[in-house]
Amino acid sequence: MNQRPSDLRATLVARHPFEQCFTDLGNHSADAALTALTHAIHAAQRDMNAYDWITQALPGATLKPALAIGTVGELYRSYTRPAEFGRLKEVWRA
């Protein structure tokens, strides 16, 4: 029993912040979903219904209901605004 206590602790895997927008990502990664969303924004699909977009871009993924009834632009803003605020708070602390 020469194991240190730190060896016995479970490690927590940090979740991607974009995962908070989804009920289920299906078999897609959060990075792949964010890449698809960024591509949709650059392809001028901001006004497309988020549910319609997610079924085409990431089959099997499920958005949270409040985000599914919005647009792709609203989904993008719901991710980027908290992320920008978090970065801003880190700058204030420095």
Rank of each mutant, 00 (worst) to 15 (best):
Q3L: 08
Q3P: 01
D7L: 10
L8A: 14
L8G: 07
R9L: 14
A10G: 07
A10P: 02
T11I: 13
L12M: 09
L12H: 10
L12E: 09
V13W: 14
R15Q: 07
R15L: 06
R15E: 10
P17F: 04
P17G: 05
F18T: 02
F18K: 01
E19Q: 15
Q20M: 08
Q20N: 11
Q20C: 06
C21E: 10
T23Q: 09
T23I: 12
D24A: 10
L25Q: 02
G26F: 05
G26N: 02
G26S: 04
G26W: 02
G26R: 01
H28E: 04
S29P: 00
A30K: 00
A30R: 02
A30S: 15
D31K: 06
D31E: 15
D31Y: 04
A32H: 09
A32P: 00
A32L: 07
L34T: 00
L34F: 11
L34C: 03
A36N: 03
A36G: 04
A36P: 00
A36Y: 01
L37A: 03
L37T: 01
T38S: 12
H39L: 12
H39Q: 13
A40S: 11
H42V: 11
H42N: 14
H42W: 07
H42L: 12
A43D: 15
A43K: 08
A44Q: 14
A44L: 07
A44F: 08
Q45E: 13
R46W: 08
D47T: 06
M48F: 07
N49L: 09
N49K: 07
A50P: 00
Y51W: 09
Y51L: 09
Y51K: 12
D52Y: 07
W53M: 04
I54S: 08
T55W: 04
Q56H: 07
L58Y: 03
L58N: 03
P59D: 05
A61S: 12
A61I: 02
T62F: 03
L63A: 04
L63P: 00
L63V: 05
K64L: 15
P65H: 07
P65R: 10
A66I: 05
A66V: 15
L67E: 05
A68S: 15
I69R: 13
I69S: 09
I69P: 01
I69T: 14
I69D: 08
G70R: 06
T71Y: 04
T71A: 10
V72E: 05
V72M: 05
V72Y: 03
G73C: 01
G73V: 04
L75T: 01
Y76T: 06
Y76G: 02
R77L: 11
R77G: 15
R77M: 14
R77N: 14
S78F: 08
S78N: 07
T80D: 05
R81S: 15
A83K: 09
A83R: 13
A83M: 12
E84Q: 10
F85S: 13
F85C: 05
G86I: 06
G86M: 07
L88F: 10
L88I: 07
K89W: 06
E90Q: 15
E90P: 00
V91D: 09
V91M: 11
